[in-house]
Simulated assay, not measured.
Amino acid sequence: MAFVGLGGGCSPGRRGVRRVICCSEDVDNKLVTFRQCFEGFKRIPVDAHTLRLIREEVSKIRDEVKVIVEVRDPRVPMSSYSTMFKQWRKELNTESMVIYTKAEIVPEDQKERIRAFTMDQMDIPYEQVFFEDLRRVRRLRTPDRQEMVSKMKRLALLRGQPTVKRESYKVMVTGVPNSGKSSVVYVSTRTLTKNRKRRGLYSLPPVGFQVGTTKVIGQNWLTLNPDVVLLDTPGVISKSHTGAEDPETPYKLAVCQCISLTKMSEQTGITAKEVADYLLFKLNQARELTYTRIYDLILPTDDIDEVLQRVPGATDELKALRFLRDFQRNKLGFLVLDDIP
């Protein structure tokens, strides 16, 4: 439904026509109202194959893993978490780190809220929660000296010295798909010695923008003394991500591209347009109305069709994907989709 009401100011529109633009005061003064709930949620299936693969691999190295590094997306600090990771930490008796990627898009006040929530949730100290701008880290000449990697080594050392000479510490990197796990491994291991490369003990992990780039558990060496082996694992969609506990979770993950929209559509019939509609609902609820300026809308709206009319693309699905991609690239403003305390 399109909104009708008076705006808070005027701005030149297309072809010289003056248009009325809605401002935040209009929303606060109830001149514009938004829907209070989103209906029609659907659940997604558990990725049983990947879960079985990882459990089998973890059982083989359970006595060697010293640290579990969980990589999360800061826009979904709760939804990108799985109780399975906490269970592994308990079973393997390991130390834990949480790394939030995409730090460049997170305002400082939001970082502190997310950090405090994570410390309480995982029962870990302040210094074991990181926000990393991986684009910046890629440009460093000696990324193995960065604070994040040094912390991995120190946490591994807390679990005791290797029992065999030249034995390596193993650090398992986990998280939901497309959260930045392989990128964390990549920026941490790209300054390896030429000797290790010649001996075939090293390979850069595949890194891509598409969900599901990593298919198997891969080992990547860090040139630290003692040696540390990073285990890059495939992204995990567990029961807590399917919507069984919170029906919004798969939609939040899909908005941040932590779930493949193609697979989501094939398995459940959820379309990109439905996910885009959910994002519009969350933007309006948070009063993050940057999209009205980006897409040259007169007023904010709850009608996804009205928004998509202004988005470039040949079909509604392509327009919806463009709308989601603009959010993922922070063009529509930063928004934490989870309701963290």
Rank of each mutant, 00 (worst) to 15 (best):
L337Y: 06
T50K: 01
S260G: 01
D316F: 02
A254G: 11
D246G: 06
A320E: 13
T174G: 04
W88P: 13
D316P: 06
S79R: 04
T33G: 09
I68K: 00
P247Q: 08
G313K: 02
W221I: 10
W88Q: 00
V58I: 07
P143N: 05
R89E: 01
S179W: 01
D316G: 04
K197T: 10
Q110W: 13
V307L: 03
E266G: 11
R75M: 09
K151P: 08
I298Y: 03
R198Q: 15
M119T: 02
R310Q: 11
Q267P: 07
Y186V: 00
E91Y: 12
S188H: 09
G175V: 14
T233M: 04
Q87P: 09
V98K: 12
V229M: 10
I21P: 02
A320H: 06
D133G: 10
V98D: 10
E104D: 09
L318I: 07
N29V: 03
V17W: 03
R115W: 02
V255F: 10
A276Y: 05
P300K: 00
I270P: 06
V211T: 09
Y278G: 01
W221N: 08
Q257D: 14
K30Y: 00
P143C: 03
Y169N: 01
V4C: 06
G160T: 05
L92H: 03
I54K: 05
E25L: 07
T94S: 12
G40C: 11
N29M: 09
Y126W: 12
L192D: 06
R310G: 00
V20Y: 02
I298P: 03
F281Y: 11
K252N: 13
R139Y: 15
S240N: 12
V164N: 02
H241W: 09
I304M: 14
D305K: 13
